[in-house]
Each structure stands twice: as C-alpha cells, then as structure tokens.
Deep mutational scan, measured.
Amino acid sequence: LQLFIKTLTGKTFTVEMEPSDTIENLKAKIQDKEGIPPDQQRLIFAGKQLEDGRTLSDYNIQKESTLHLVL
C-alpha cells in the first residue's frame, strides 16, 4: 500500500509498504529514501505516536493514508 509521509517543513514523499510491515520497517524505508536515522523519527497517525513493534494494520493504516514525520 502506498503511504504519504508529510514532514513539518511541508515536504511530502511516498513509500510503498505492506499492511503486515512494522513501524520499524517503515522507519527503515524512510531512512533509505530520506537518510533520516530511525531513532530520530517520530511518526504520528490520527493523533497517535506509532510504536516500532506494531504493524501498520494494528493502527488501521490504509492505502494512501498520510503519516506525519516529526524529527
């Protein structure tokens, strides 16, 4: 599923993930694309901070959802 990642600077980029992927996987993918170390990434969806060990489906993140990346 394609997700939109929006940064505080207003930049938006996309990543391609599976619902079974963990937040950790997502942070690694963001590191590949943007060079931001996972330990500096905080991801927010629907007002909640996402925890590394959980999956996208745990948070009911669907295709074309927008996640906010806070550094």
Rank of each mutant, 00 (worst) to 15 (best):
L1A: 06
L1C: 03
L1F: 07
L1R: 04
Q2R: 08
Q2V: 14
Q2Y: 11
F4A: 06
I5F: 03
I5R: 00
T7D: 09
T7R: 12
L8P: 13
L8T: 11
L8S: 14
G10E: 05
G10R: 07
K11F: 10
K11D: 09
K11P: 07
K11L: 15
K11E: 12
T12Q: 11
F13Y: 07
F13H: 03
F13W: 07
T14N: 15
T14E: 10
T14D: 06
V15K: 00
V15A: 03
E16A: 13
E18Y: 12
E18Q: 10
E18F: 13
P19T: 06
P19G: 07
P19C: 04
S20T: 15
D21K: 05
D21S: 11
I23T: 05
I23W: 01
I23N: 01
I23K: 00
I23Y: 02
I23C: 02
E24K: 07
E24H: 11
N25G: 12
N25E: 09
L26A: 02
L26D: 00
A28G: 15
K29Y: 08
I30G: 00
I30M: 02
D32M: 15
K33A: 13
E34A: 13
G35Q: 06
G35C: 03
I36W: 13
I36S: 05
I36M: 06
P37V: 06
D39A: 12
D39P: 08
Q40H: 10
Q40W: 08
Q40P: 02
Q40V: 07
Q40E: 10
Q41F: 09
Q41S: 04
Q41A: 05
Q41T: 04
R42S: 11
R42W: 09
L43F: 05
I44K: 05
F45S: 03
A46H: 15
G47Q: 04
K48H: 12
L50R: 00
L50V: 05
L50E: 00
L50W: 02
E51S: 08
E51Q: 11
D52H: 08
D52F: 04
D52G: 12
T55N: 06
T55F: 07
T55G: 03
T55W: 04
L56H: 01
L56A: 04
L56F: 07
L56V: 10
L56C: 03
S57T: 12
S57R: 15
S57W: 11
S57F: 13
D58P: 00
D58L: 03
Y59L: 05
I61C: 01
Q62P: 11
K63F: 11
K63Y: 12
E64F: 13
E64S: 15
E64W: 15
E64I: 05
S65V: 10
T66A: 04
T66K: 05
L67M: 04
L67V: 11
L67T: 02
L67R: 02
H68C: 05
L69N: 01
V70R: 08
V70L: 13
V70S: 14
V70A: 08
L71V: 09
L71G: 07
L71M: 14
